[in-house]
Structure formats: structure tokens, C-alpha cells
Amino acid sequence: MKGRVAITPRSMSEAGHPALGLLSQSGYELVFPAPGRQPTEAELMASLPGCVGYLAGVEPVSRKVIEMSRDLRVISRNGVGIDNIDLDAARSRGIVVEKALGANTRGVAELAMALMMCGLRHVSWSDRVLGAGEWKRRKGREAFGRTLGIVGCGAIGRALAQMCLSIGMKVLGYDPVWKNDGSLGPYFRLVGLDELYAEAEIVSLHCPPGARPLVDAAAIDAMRPNVLLINTARAELIDGEALLAGLNSGKVAAFATDVYQTEPPMLNDLLRHENAIRTPHAGGLTEESVDRATRIAVENLLRVLEGHGSA
């Protein structure tokens, strides 16, 4: 046996995946710290020592965990987000951190679009009300001709832009790094964040978090009345108290989220709000996305462990 590899993403730790067979066939023993659920820090600390590889999900990977994992050579995420990993600790130990670039782009973009449609047409609210035996209706809004603001124009943001442009929407994008290359056509404009907030009727977040929430009271105040806010990126992007105040005042018409501070989340006043739309971090949970992410993550692990270096 060449060594042990820990597998923690729920999508593969519970039911397995054919791509994991590549690791076994290459001589690695697979370890599942918490099958079917997100492992705790204590479970990681109990399982990772002795592992040379770690196929990681969205669970926090702290300095404490990394420092105890003395044999660990590579952490391979089955997604693109690595802000859950203490990167300074990994670098100090010489541990390579890999991402499954592009694996869940389509799945997350399609979910963001689904959440947008759900918010515009009150699908979630209507389902709850009718399921409770009440016959009530809310007037919805059509997507055609409306302006979507995308904060973060990476692969997911651009995929969402293409889908929304194809149904006759106008799209504004904000990104401090990406430069508009014209590939999205004339109905897409790259603008400043202030202009995006002022003009967009729907705002969708597709960026990493910073030191403080991006959407705070000032940002919500700068947005248009009846704005629809969508977050399929990271929960830390939003000031929950400010958003709850925006929902209660009616400034924010609806809030749709696929991401949470902890999983499963505590159902606070924000998440219980009648105009909140919740999905259980399912953006990348499609058959296609899971297949791509698993395959890429396994390939990245083997590339490093077999001595072929980082991508």
C-alpha cells in the first residue's frame, strides 16, 4: 500500500464513486472520516494523521488539523472554493492544495438561474401557502428585459450571464480582475459595484468572501427597491442582520441562498423569513457536476502523489 487517502465530500463518502477506484487501483487505502455528512474538526484530527492525500469537501480545514497531519502531501478539493482551508498552514507544511476547476460551473449557474426564477415568480412562497391549504397569489415579474447584476465574473458568473442574456435579459457584471473580452455580447456591460447596485433588479453573488461582508446595510441601501438577492457563493458575503432588515422593510423583495455559515444551518429569523428561498448547498450536486468534480479531484491527487507535480 502506498498510503492512505481521506475522502470527506458527502456526495462520495456515502455512496462512493467509480472514480475513487483509480485511487484504490493505484495502491492507496481509502478512509472515510464521516460517511454521508460533513466531518468535525475532531473527526479530521482522528482520521488524517497517517494520510498522504485528502480529497476534501467544504468542511473547515484548520491549522490545528493540518499541523497534526504530518504525512499529508496534498489536499484536493472537489470544487473551486478553497477558503475553507488554512492556506498559510498548508504552505508552511509544503502541502499542495488543488482545485477541481470548472467542475461545478454549469450546475451552480443553473441553480442560480432557478433561484432567480423562483424569486421572480414566488414559486417557493406559493408552494408553501398552497401546501398549507390556502389559496393566495402574488403578482410575479417576468425575466425578459430585466437587469441582472453579477458580482464576480469568473466561470460561474459568465455562465449565468450567457443563460440570462439568451432569454432577453440585460446583464451587468462587476469583477476587479476579469476584463470584458466582448464574448458576452452587447447586452453585457462591466461596471463598478455602485453602478451595479443602482441599476440591477436582481443581484447574484459569485465571488469569494473578503475580510468583511460585501452586502451590508450600505450596500442594501444602494440597491434598487424590490431587489432580488441570490447567493450561491459563500455565506460570509452577507451581513445577515442588515439583510433581515432589508427583507422586513420590503427593500429586498426576496433572498435566495444555497450557502450557510454552518451546515446544516441554524434556522434563524433570516432563514425563516417568508421571502427567503433556501436550498441545501446543492449548486454542485448534479450528476454531471459530481462526476466532473470527482474525476478532476482524483486526477489532481494522483498527479501530486505519483510525483507529477501540481497542475
Rank of each mutant, 00 (worst) to 15 (best):
L30R: 04
T257L: 01
I167L: 03
N248F: 01
H281L: 08
G79L: 12
P9G: 04
D239E: 04
Q25L: 07
L23D: 01
Q25N: 12
G173D: 08
V96W: 02
D194R: 11
A132R: 13
N231K: 01
F255Q: 09
Q38F: 13
C153Q: 11
A6S: 06
R212E: 09
Y28D: 09
A242S: 13
L305E: 05
S166G: 10
P18R: 12
R77Y: 06
M68H: 14
V191G: 13
V298H: 00
V31K: 06
D194G: 05
L214F: 00
A112N: 05
R212V: 03
D71R: 06
A217L: 02
E98R: 10
A254N: 03
L148V: 15
V129D: 10
R63A: 14
R106A: 13
A211S: 13
D175R: 09
K99F: 10
C164N: 11
R272C: 15
N248R: 09
A109H: 01
W125Y: 08
L243V: 02
V252T: 02
V191F: 12
K99R: 11
A222W: 05
H17A: 06
E110K: 02
S47M: 03
R93V: 02
H308E: 09
N180Q: 05
F188G: 01
F255V: 07
G192D: 09
A42N: 04
K99W: 03
L160E: 14
P33F: 00
V171Q: 07
V290M: 14
H273P: 05
G182N: 04
V177Q: 09
I82V: 14
D175W: 01
Y54R: 15
